[in-house]
Amino acid sequence: MKNQEILSLIKYKKTRLSKNEYDIYSKQIILKQIGVEGQKKLRKAKILVVGAGGLGSPTMIYLVISGIGHIGIIDHDEIEKSNLNRQILYNKNDIGKEKVFSAKNSLNNINENCKIITHKCKLNRENSIEIVSHYDIIIDTTDNFRTRHIIDETCHKLHKIYIYGAVREFEGQVAVFNYKNGIRYKDLYKKESKIIQNTCNTRGIMGITTGYIGTLQAIELIKIILGLSKGCKNFIISYNLIEIMIKKKLIYLKRHAIQSINYQKRDERILSNIDLDYKKNKIYIIIDLRNSKDFNMKHIKKSINIPIIKFKLTQTIKLINKFKNIGQIIIYCNTKYKSIIASKFLVQYSIKHEIA
Rank of each mutant, 00 (worst) to 15 (best):
F170S: 05
I208S: 11
S260M: 13
C155K: 07
M206N: 13
Y252W: 05
D136K: 07
E171N: 12
Q197F: 05
N144W: 07
K254P: 00
H159W: 07
R255G: 15
H156R: 13
R255N: 15
L250P: 04
S133Y: 12
A257I: 13
I163C: 05
H149P: 09
D136R: 11
I163R: 03
T199M: 12
V174E: 05
N240V: 00
Y239E: 03
D187W: 09
Y135M: 04
R168S: 13
K249Y: 14
I222H: 07
K186Q: 09
T210W: 08
K186M: 00
I161K: 06
K233V: 00
G204Y: 12
G227S: 10
I183A: 04
H149Y: 14
I246E: 12
I225A: 04
I195F: 11
I236D: 01
D140F: 08
L188Y: 11
D143V: 02
I138T: 02
A218H: 09
K191L: 06
K248P: 07
I150T: 00
H156Q: 11
L228C: 07
Y185N: 10
K194G: 08
K223A: 09
E153P: 04
E153D: 15
I236A: 01
I242C: 06
K254A: 03
K160V: 08
T142R: 02
T215R: 09
N198T: 14
K230S: 10
V174C: 12
H149Q: 10
Y179D: 03
D152I: 05
I196G: 10
K254S: 11
I137D: 06
G227V: 06
A175Q: 05
G204V: 12
H149C: 04
T147F: 06
H159Y: 12
T210Q: 04
I139K: 00
V176H: 02
M245N: 15
I258H: 13
I196T: 15
